[in-house]
Design a protein around this nucleic acid. Sequence first.
DNA 1: AAAAGATCCAACCGCTTCTCA
DNA 2: CTGAGAAGCGGTTGGATCTTT
Length: 309
Amino acid sequence: MSHKRGSTISNKDEDMEIRGGPWTLEEDTLLIHSIAFHGQGRWNLLARCSGLKRTGKSCRLRWLNYLKPDIKRGNLSPEEQLLILELHSKWGNRWSRIAQHLPGRTDNEIKNYWRTRVQKQARQLKIDANSAMFRDAVRCYWMPRLLEKMMTSQPPYQSMQIDLHASADAAVINQQLQLPPQVVHWPLQEVLQLENNRSSTSYELSGLTTAAVHTVHQVPNLTEFSSTANQFDELSGLELNPVESGPLTNTSADKSSFSNTTATAAANNCMSMTDDDNVRKVEKDELYAILESYLDGVLSSVEDEMVFS
DNA sequence: AAAAGATCCAACCGCTTCTCA
DNA sequence: CTGAGAAGCGGTTGGATCTTT
């Protein structure tokens, strides 16, 4: 049984037309008011009481995926993407379960993200998206890039302050933009702190954490994925310029060398180990330690849940 | 500027699980 | 315990929009 979207079908039982297709503003308003009055649940009853010519199922979906006030709009943040990748590697296509750990995101949205972005990458790499090989590729290439993006992006509190002061003059806003990032409280705070303590490189001066440099410079040696790195760069939203290999240092000049160095070149560097092999190994281990540390923190509640389930 | 292709995402479908009489 | 209806879930579709040629 199916009908064309946007059409109406007749419900023989109740001799009432059931509407399908996109929801109108009037329908949305009606549904919101009905839920405010009756509460969520008992969707079929709610659909009847509201006067909407929709099935209860359709009302539920519209509310949960679109109208609910705490629904987040816009692109998934690197943190959210990282979490999806990690949770999917644990649970597979359990979208609803994954969505429970991403406040404001719906299972539908996460499913769409997986199908349009992640599976696309798998297709291009000619790897089964559910295979161990693809999981490895995600973990070794994609996740570090997302982590790097998280570390180099504007901490959320700054944009929030700007929003709050939207009516303030430009001078005030500029002043706020220059607030030191150290006071921010966000999930990666500990990781950032860790990095700042360990390195003499200034987080603010370089505009890039040392971890971020490690992320790009110490890509694991997975020669079978020759084109993987570039694809994941694209996917994680990084805009890296064409290859320009060369010595990689950990100074404030890193930002430019970083922007001109693809992960592929970095991987090549890794493959041709030199005198500082040991140093690089340590850095690589550190990167994974950071990644693991972050994921462990985020997923601690998830692990508990797995123990008891 | 137009056509073709790619991407995104809301909405639908069918199946499974839950709830309750 | 059982069966019916409701709710939930994951897979799929199709139309709107964006990008490329």
